[in-house]
Write a protein that binds this DNA or RNA. Structure first.
Length: 502
RNA sequence: GACCGCUUAGCUCAGCCGGUAGAGCAACUGACUUUUAAUCAGUAGGUCCCGGGUUCGAAUCCCGGAGCGGUCACCA
């Protein structure tokens, strides 16, 4: 391009604030000088964190003859650019430019450098008398000229909405945000490592589901054009994973993946969230309790170093063994009422009413027990506990309890009043499964939007034979909230769902 | 979905009983030069979220709307 110095930026002035205009001007100065403000590559001799380690022994004021090439984002300029704070994802270093040791050509480049630019620098490394590890700049390279100003350096970006909408800015400015999302990554890696060590096979199953299944939830609906068919975005991977166990691809399979529920958004609910589900042949829900406990402990230890984790006003102690208590038993402890004594929904409803928990007439016995449990027991479950033996009414995919036909072999693990895991001995009797589906379909026809659909192919798969299988699922996002002391699920999601602006 | 709250410069925030817009950072001009939120002097920067209304006069009061947050309801 013809590099002619241009005073006037190419963008209409009314579209820019003064800060941007100054940056545009500097960009033009670079172009005019024949400098590419967006070069293709820069060879670093080291990242910043290893440098800090390598030179930790340098005393204040000590100078080396070691030449380094470093790169990162400029976070601060002091003394008209004599001191630059450079940062990369894991470290920081100071750049020092002074006419006594920096060539005039490089000193000149400082005039086109702003806070927020990505730059590279070469020079010898030293520690200043005030103790800052520093590169004495011999050569400057603009690596990416920024055109927008960074948020205020001291307070950072605090506007919660903007932090989620422009997560990149939040990440540039807030160490805490970077750390929370890094911890999430570590948690997922830790889970995967634990599962792989067990010999479980990681698989991927469809997100586009022609038939809703695997959980009671309201779905998103989407459309495939050439098939001219609507699909649901999955609310759970469950039925496909069990098909794989039927197929014998492995004794243990698991999937970590995005799941979608078209329900309210809250500090604990994002419309798309990440679950892990695992299925293990020849095991039952007792084995799953051991499994969930081991896995959670392994990951907590890996992320936190120990098993005690602060959350809000509490300290969660993940050391085991975690108590295992029946849901009905817990309800009885809390209410002095044994709901197993009520053989009809009406009797249970009356007892719930007396507790101030009203339920609509169409709900069944299990749903009433669940409502009482949610109201009276859940808020007390701070430390890890496996709540076992759920009503069959609310568990259409779980195997009937071996000692009580009204219950199923299911448990949910609670921590900090939240359900973090849900597991059962999988129902593998095809006739019983069909009967359960029929009940769901009836509930759906009676207006229960969240009741499950009959999946003929899944029943057919069961008819070929699913081994006795233990299955479990865990919401990764909430688990991450617990381990990062986050009070909002959005903090542990890189790009949480927001209403589009305007 | 209901209730409550917030929204002012690029960012962080003031703005009283209604009298016509302020600071710090960032930017610009200059000074200074081993700083650590550098310092000093000066300059520029506004759809006060949007739309109505009341008023001589609205960032401020009233009504409606939007986005976000908190609480509750449902869900994991």
């Amino acid at each position: 391009m013809s590099a002619k110095p241009s005073k006037a930026p190419e963008v209409a002035p009314q579209d820019m604030n003064a800060v941007r205009a100054a940056k545009e001007r500097k960009l033009h100065e670079l172009l005019a000088a024949g400098v590419d403000p967006y070069p293709h590559v820069f060879k670093r001799s080291s990242r910043l964190a290893p440098l800090a380690e390598k030179y930790a022994h340098l005393k204040d004021g000590e100078v080396t003859t070691d030449e380094v090439a470093v790169a990162g984002r400029i976070m601060a300029l002091r003394n008209n650019g004599m001191f630059i704070d450079l940062r990369d994802p894991n470290g920081k270093i100071q750049l020092f430019s002074h006419k006594d040791n920096t060539p005039e050509s490089e000193m000149k480049k400082l005039e086109t450098v702003d806070i927020g630019d990505i730059v590279g620098a070469k020079g010898i490394i030293r520690r200043t008398p005030r103790g800052e590890l520093t590169v004495n700049v011999k050569e400057f390279t603009m690596l990416s000229k920024s055109l927008l100003p960074l948020p205020e350096k001291y307070h950072g970006l605090t506007d919660i909405e903007q932090r989620y909408r422009q997560r990149y800015l939040d990440l540039i400015m807030n160490e805490e945000s970077r750390n929370v999302l890094r911890t999430r990554s570590k948690i997922v890696t830790g889970i995967r490592k634990h599962m792989d060590a067990l010999g479980a096979l990681e698989v991927e199953t469809p997100i586009l589901h022609p038939i809703l299944g695997g959980a009671s939830a309201k779905p998103f609906v989407t459309h495939h054009n050439t098939l001219d068919t609507n699909f649901y975005l999955r609310v759970a991977p469950e039925l496909f994973l069990k098909r794989l166990v039927i197929g014998g691809i492995a004794d243990s399979v698991y999937e970590i993946g995005r799941t979608f529920r078209n329900e309210g958004i809250s500090p604990k609910h994002n419309p798309e969230f990440t679950m892990i589900e695992g299925y293990h042949a020849y095991m039952d829900y007792n084995d799953m309790m051991d499994h969930v406990e081991n896995l959670v402990q392994a990951v907590v230890k890996e992320v936190h170093g120990g098993l005690k984790v602060p959350y809000g006003d509490y300290e969660i102690d993940f050391s085991g063994p975690w108590p295992r208590k029946g849901m009905l038993e817990l309800v009885t402890e809390a209410t002095k009422i044994d709901f197993l004594h009520f053989d009809t929904a009406d009797k249970a409803r009356k007892a719930a009413d007396d507790l101030g928990i009203s339920t609509p007439p169409e709900v069944n016995w299990g749903q009433i027990v669940e409502a009482v449990f949610a109201e009276q027991v859940e808020p007390t479950l701070i430390q890890p506990i496996h709540v076992t033996d759920y009503p069959m009414d609310i568990s259409p995919l779980a195997k009937t309890h071996r000692s009580n036909p009204r219950l199923v072999e299911r448990f949910e693990t609670f921590v900090n009043t939240w359900e973090i895991a849900n597991a059962f001995s999988e129902l593998n009797d095809p006739k019983e499964q069909r009967r359960r589906f029929d009940l769901q379909v009836a509930a759906r026809e009676a207006g229960d939007e969240e009741a499950q659909m009959l999946d003929e192919d899944y029943v057919a798969a069961l008819e070929y034979g699913l081994p006795p299988t233990g299955g479990w699922g865990m919401g990764i996002d909430r688990f991450c909230m617990l381990l990062t002391n986050s009070s909002n699920i959005r903090d542990v999601i890189c790009f949480p769902t927001l209403k589009p602006k305007k």
